[in-house]
């Protein structure tokens, strides 16, 4: 009986991993179909909560959602089956591609194609950064009254400064991103409750 649930969790998240391109928000419709509509493991609201928790905790969003939903259904083993399910398609597909690609890389046309693709990757990352600047740097964090972290966080220059510092330190000095992540978290905690002077 329990094994049946484990296999269902594995199967559902295997399909989610298999049919999601790109990750992040693009996986939400597939999650809804499997988790809410097909199996009723969570309501739409619970799924969105789970999704926002996954975004704020370390690691890959899709994998975190799998771990949370699997845990909710069947504790440790449920989390394990769901997590392994969501990463298995990637491991199989990427291993096959990586193994075959090595045989083609020496062909001139393939090398030119990848040189072109590099330009697209640069454009896609810069494009993603522009969107992230709009939502994470320029936009005011949501107002939530007494429960909020304090008025200091409303300052645009604070977020702009953090963005520029983080970019410059990592781009021009080889500092590990770990220090930036830890530093930004500590800065936030230190500033909680600071009044806007």
């Amino acid at each position: 009986m329990r094994m049946k649930l484990y296999m269902k969790l594995f199967g559902a998240f295997f399909r989610i991993g298999l049919f999601t391109f790109g990750g992040g928000y693009s996986m939400l419709p597939m999650l809804q179909r499997e988790v809410v509509d097909k199996y009723g493991w969570a309501t739409n609201d619970e799924l969105l909560d789970c999704f926002s928790i996954s975004q704020c905790t370390p690691g890959v969003i899709a994998v975190n959602s799998a771990t949370l939903i699997g845990y909710k259904q069947a504790k440790l083993a449920g989390a394990l089956f769901a997590t392994i399910g969501v990463i298995t398609p990637s491991i199989i597909i990427i291993t096959i591609i990586a193994a075959t690609l090595q045989n083609f890389m020496h062909i001139a046309a393939v090398a030119h194609a990848f040189a072109g693709i590099r330009v697209a990757v640069a454009a896609l990352i810069v494009s993603a950064v522009i969107k992230l600047i709009k939502s994470n740097v320029l936009q005011q964090p949501a107002e939530d009254g007494k429960q909020g972290p304090g008025p200091f966080f409303k300052r645009h220059w604070l977020r702009l400064l953090l963005f520029i510092l983080s970019f410059a330190i990592v781009a021009f000095f080889s500092v590990s991103p770990i220090f930036i992540v830890a530093g930004a978290i500590l800065t936030g905690i230190a500033l909680v409750g600071k009044a806007a002077a």
């Binding site: 990352i125 810069v126 993603a128 950064v129 992230l132 600047i133 994470n136 740097v137 964090p141 972290p149 966080f153 604070l158 977020r159 702009l160 953090l162 963005f163 520029i164 510092l165 983080s166 970019f167 410059a168 990592v170 781009a171 991103p177 930036i180 992540v181 530093g183 930004a184 978290i185 800065t187 936030g188 500033l191």
Partner: peptide, 12 residues
């Protein structure tokens, strides 16, 4: 709130 702009900078 402070982490998000920093992560944006990292990706940049």
């Amino acid at each position: 709130i402070t982490l998000r702009p920093a992560v944006t900078g990292l990706i940049a």
